[in-house]
Design a protein around this nucleic acid. Sequence first.
DNA 1: AATTTATGTCAGTCTTGTTGACTTTCCAAG
DNA 2: CTTGGAAAGTCAACAAGACTGACATAAATT
Lengths: 165, 165
Amino acid sequence: MRDRLQQGGENLLFLTDDQLLQGIELLFFAYRGFTSDPDRILENYTYGRAHHRAIHFIHRRPGTSVNSMLDILGVTKQSLNRVLRQLIEDGLVESKIGEKDRRERHLFLTKSGKELESELSSAQRKRLRTAYKEAGPDAVLGFRKVLENIMDPSMRKHVKKLVKD
Amino acid sequence: MRDRLQQGGENLLFLTDDQLLQGIELLFFAYRGFTSDPDRILENYTYGRAHHRAIHFIHRRPGTSVNSMLDILGVTKQSLNRVLRQLIEDGLVESKIGEKDRRERHLFLTKSGKELESELSSAQRKRLRTAYKEAGPDAVLGFRKVLENIMDPSMRKHVKKLVKD
DNA sequence: AATTTATGTCAGTCTTGTTGACTTTCCAAG
DNA sequence: CTTGGAAAGTCAACAAGACTGACATAAATT
């Protein structure tokens, strides 16, 4: 009876503050695990997580402009510039002047950039693949749906859609 | 046919690299959204995300020792100490010398500590509650299952279990 | 021609991580 | 009982990576 009143007749037990707080902690611990593999690999280089993020998104969206990277990464241009400068100097990233608009710089991974990307990505994919496999396809669907809802709506367009077969 | 071979006869399309890379991006964007509300609130204080984390876990586990906080947060004691010192100086956290072992310090939120916790937590819970509500209970179950699998197994014990009614 | 846009750079600050050295307290082996 | 090591916590100095602000250059737009 008390429950019915609180829940408005529906089963909304998954929305209690306790459940939400547990969700907050799950996200915290999971995200730390999720970043730990690449972080460990990057210790052998002079790079950090910021470089990883840049490399990931350049890989997934070859040819994006600096400006759109700023949008995606949500950092200042000064911050991104420091990272890009190093990656370009070290020959992992190539910056090509735009053909249509010559103010723009379009970013690409070089061969060795792709190699590092692959090393970082495969560690992270391995962790996710195991997690997905153990949870099963339905759980993964729910996982994705909740994450989509958590992010700022303006960011949803940046999640690269899957290629239809 | 080609699919059957690749998938070993099962429907494992949710384990393709494309799906995994999409999951990586979802986690990235969702986590940023998830931390943005507290970050915005904390701009009005002299605190940052590290303080938020300390406050959250002290709230959830009143009386924990500094050492167990180190385990949970995964930072060095020097790093945590700086944060705790500020919070104690400002009267948000109380540190009590252990009765059994006088080397230990047990941590508690004061009244104003609880107030800040509540402000930060309610913003984050609100975002998560909306996300949960729109996704539905089954999706939330999957969300939690995948997150549990992603985190390092040694961290699972730190996710506070829900109180059974 | 003037303005706006895209990018890059220099300088300085802040948060939050790190390592190294130190003190206090506890406990156990001689 | 003493002594030596381990554990808990503190202080100091440093580094990565975010930030703001000011300014420069080139190209596109009005």
